[in-house]
Design a protein around this nucleic acid. Sequence first.
DNA 1: AACTATTATGTTATATTATAACATTCATTT
DNA 2: AAATGAATGTTATAATATAACATAATAGTT
Lengths: 151, 151
Amino acid sequence: MSTCKNHKISIDEALKKAEIICNKKGVKLTKLRQKVLTLILKNHGYVKAYDLLNDLKKNDASAKPPTVYRSLDFLMEHGFIHKIQSLNAFVGCSHPDEHEDCYFLICKECKNIEECCSNTVKKVLTSTSGKNNFSPNQVTLEITGICQDCS
Amino acid sequence: MSTCKNHKISIDEALKKAEIICNKKGVKLTKLRQKVLTLILKNHGYVKAYDLLNDLKKNDASAKPPTVYRSLDFLMEHGFIHKIQSLNAFVGCSHPDEHEDCYFLICKECKNIEECCSNTVKKVLTSTSGKNNFSPNQVTLEITGICQDCS
DNA sequence: AACTATTATGTTATATTATAACATTCATTT
DNA sequence: AAATGAATGTTATAATATAACATAATAGTT
């Protein structure tokens, strides 16, 4: 069982968690989707779609862009991964079951991405949106900088 | 002089402002850059790079991707426009001289984008980053939802 | 004015990211 | 087994962006 200081939980645990959530929802975590999720979780930083595709090709030469994008779509839809908009990249989610608005601390040194949840941030964003009479739907909050280990 | 309720200032004013800032900085707002900035400001919502390219081609058939991307880079570098990461699109900036961390309210109905500055938001983000021992460098905050006019 | 250095633009080519559209396979239910 | 719907395979292409090198314009120097 592989673990990593950057994973709140191990890959195996994350996969099991995903399996359980899928069962609850009545959707299927197919072999392919598992494979893609595993490849993403294995990385401590972020992963690019075409790097994933190349990884998939090692086992299955017939893998093509839709192969990976469809899995990515599924995994995003169910909160198992997130897309980092400012990088066109993807990261695993450490807590797909308890999902709130999250934000990302992206270290430009080590490329590591920390996913954070903060009620304070959430509240401030909601209230500021409210002041603008805006009904928020989806928040993209990505903070690039230098992490503790790299400073 | 064209104005728009969504522009805090008119296009002409924005151009003049940009001109002044460029002079101060010792950089040049060339005809091409002016043209690109104008095309962006004319839009009330966001603009895609290749739409800009097509607009440019109307006057100059030889325009090519680097033509527009270089201008976009320049305009972003000096704060005259912003890139909306979640849309791969660009919006004009209404206050390039008094620049702080801004965020964007993106209406998925009317496609309008409101640029906002909030000290509260800024403070919360800085302090939350600090709690994670993270030195923020650049913040991407994009909130998608429904604006007042569309709700 | 001629020379030089720098900046900006032109040009060709290609890299990167992502989706549309249709065919086939697989799993589940009947 | 047949029918259905979901998932995957496959082909093609769309959309976004940059590398690399050539030329032109500009500003500063002689």
